[in-house]
Amino acid sequence: MKPIDYLIEQSDRYGILYAQKQLDMFEVYADKLLEWNQKMNLTAITDPQEIMVKHFLDSLLLLTVVHLPKGAKLIDVGTGAGFPGMALKIMRPDLRVTLLDSLQKRLTFLQVLADELGIPDIEYLHARAEDAGRNPAHREQYDFAVSRAVANLRELSEYCLPLVRQGGYFISYKGYEMEEEAAQAEKAVEILGGRLEHVEKLELPGDNKRSLLFIKKISQTSSRFPRMPAKIAKNPII
């Protein structure tokens, strides 16, 4: 089975339907990801079928559990090779997407990819999350912040919640067993102006499982946050 056909088959159980143009885009995306991965570290997943599920379908699960309003402003914090932000943009071209990463070479890959796919209107932000969170151009400017970053939720919330407007959401892609981590982050989330509203648990093909944590921004984040990474690591909010 061709990898793209595998994506179609596995997506069907979630009700995710693709236009032919979107399927063509994901095929090019997978090819370019593997091509560029030979010269820079973009992904440890190199099996084409696994890319379709563990990167593309995993990124798109968000669309099955929440309605993103037309034209919503979304920032992907620590986007890496574009997951989930670029995949979401392919499916929802109306979204105003900002891809944030601290490494310019990753953003260069995404810019080249977007040009090849013909995707306009993406902002590429070369910055550390703590710097973006203190920049008035980005602080509390987004309807949604999303992240598949592997950082602990307590620290990740300090990076992401300052970017979200009141009434918006920080959505964290986490592993299936995340209850203890979420409990440890509860106080920090509250101090940062958020509230863990609910968790969606989803199963991907094989043994792959995913939790999506929805943290609503209910009040402004204090100007004390985000702090520098060394301070966050040394003195986490508890």
Rank of each mutant, 00 (worst) to 15 (best):
K2F: 12
I4N: 13
I8D: 13
E9N: 12
E9V: 06
E9P: 13
Q10L: 12
Q10C: 14
D12H: 11
D12M: 06
G15P: 01
L17D: 07
Y18L: 07
Y18I: 11
A19D: 11
A19S: 08
Q20Y: 12
Q20V: 13
Q22A: 02
D24F: 05
D24S: 14
M25Q: 02
M25C: 01
F26A: 04
F26T: 01
E27N: 10
D31M: 13
D31V: 14
K39C: 07
M40F: 05
M40I: 00
M40N: 03
N41R: 02
N41S: 05
T43W: 07
A44R: 03
I45W: 01
I45S: 00
D47F: 15
P48K: 03
P48Y: 01
P48I: 00
P48H: 03
Q49H: 05
Q49G: 05
I51C: 11
M52I: 06
V53E: 12
V53H: 11
F56C: 04
L57S: 04
L57G: 03
D58M: 13
S59F: 11
L60P: 15
L60D: 08
L61W: 09
L61S: 14
L63F: 11
T64Y: 00
H67G: 10
P69G: 10
P69W: 04
K70P: 10
K70L: 09
A72H: 13
A72G: 10
K73R: 05
K73H: 11
L74P: 15
L74Q: 13
L74V: 14
L74S: 15
I75M: 02
V77Q: 06
G78W: 11
G78H: 10
T79N: 12
T79D: 12
T79G: 10
A81W: 04
G82M: 02
F83K: 03
M86P: 14
A87S: 13
A87G: 14
K89P: 11
K89L: 07
I90C: 15
R92K: 12
R92W: 12
P93G: 02
D94M: 00
D94W: 01
L95R: 02
R96D: 15
R96G: 15
L99Q: 01
L100C: 05
D101S: 10
D101V: 08
S102E: 04
S102G: 06
S102M: 04
L103K: 09
Q104K: 13
Q104C: 14
K105F: 10
R106F: 14
L107K: 02
T108H: 14
L110I: 14
Q111F: 07
V112P: 14
L113W: 09
A114T: 05
A114Q: 07
A114I: 03
E116N: 12
L117E: 08
L117Q: 12
G118I: 01
I119N: 03
I119R: 02
